[in-house]
Amino acid sequence: MIRSTILTIIFTFIFIFDLSARESISIVGSSTVYPFSTTVAEEFGRKNASFKSPIVESTGSGGGLKLFCSGLGPNTPDITNASRRIKLKEISLCKSNGVKDIIEIKIGFDGIVFANSKNGIDLELTTKDIYLALAKEVPCGAQDDVTCENQSKLWSDVNSELPELPIMVYGPPPTSGTRDAFVEIAMTDGCNSISWIKDLKKKNKNEWKKLCRTIREDGKYIEAGENDNLIIQKLNSNKNSFGIFGFSFLDQNSDQVKGTKINGVYPTFDAIAIGDYKISRSLYFYVKKAHIGSIPGIEEFLTHFVSEDAIGEDGYLIDKGLIPLPEDELLRYENDAKSLANMRY
């Protein structure tokens, strides 16, 4: 009895070591792209009975690219999602590990919204207001080149036209891609609207970066973790607070929260798609060309993902809150996917 158990265990292990091949596509990467990627994975699995549904892991854009670039073979992912473009540093890491041919697909845009409870007031902000309210160091006094620690407690301290409400903003922590994008687009834009800071960029880029992209740490900006649902709950319980999160969360919770008008534009689907609402970023995924052929279904998955049915104007991902690409760009990536063209950087 005992002997046979031991034998079974040994045989199981031999059997396991024999199993190096993988049958399902492995996808890693950004948590922002995750809802879209999983939707396509599910739909793909359902439509193509001959392939297994791809497995999607949410590791963050940076973490995903690190795994993706760690080498070739069934133990490395085939596809990674990213809510930003791959960096040159990452491309060279990929190359040094043998991942030479990469296909780049842009799937659409994601807006980043500034929102508050539906029962709260309607605020109209400019990116400058946002910068002055949330940056760690802000210009002070009439003189140029002088900055001091951000002392604003009320929105009216930032801009006298704004109401006397306390500044209280819930947002993602520094590890989040949403935060990176928000800082890079909204804060930087607001920062550059002050002319001497804009000039500083040419003179001392590091100093400029530090000034524009550091968020205050005195409790006015509250890091609420990566969970956007949590931020929405907080906004509900305190109607004076604001939150920063992705457009899809605003779309799903439109009965509870509303988007703030920034630079005169509301964060609506159309405004983001046309490009009137500026705080948005592109979403990508990257495919390891060397795995096509050895892992079944990658090519088919690619064509399915870029199809009109998925990311076209009426595609099912649009219902999930993805902002579609303009016609010509969609066509370009569709061609790239069909011809398996290497990325151009």
Binding site: Y34, P35, S37, T38, E42, S53, D228, N229
Partner: peptide, 27 residues
């Protein structure tokens, strides 16, 4: 994210607490 119910311990799968974590984070 795994759509298929795992048949053997070698198939990709999640676990119960992981499922909770993933759903709590969904829009």
């Amino acid at each position: 994210f795994v759509v298929d119910v795992p048949g053997t311990p070698l198939d990709p799968s999640t676990a119960l607490p992981v499922q909770i974590f993933l759903w709590a984070d969904s829009p």
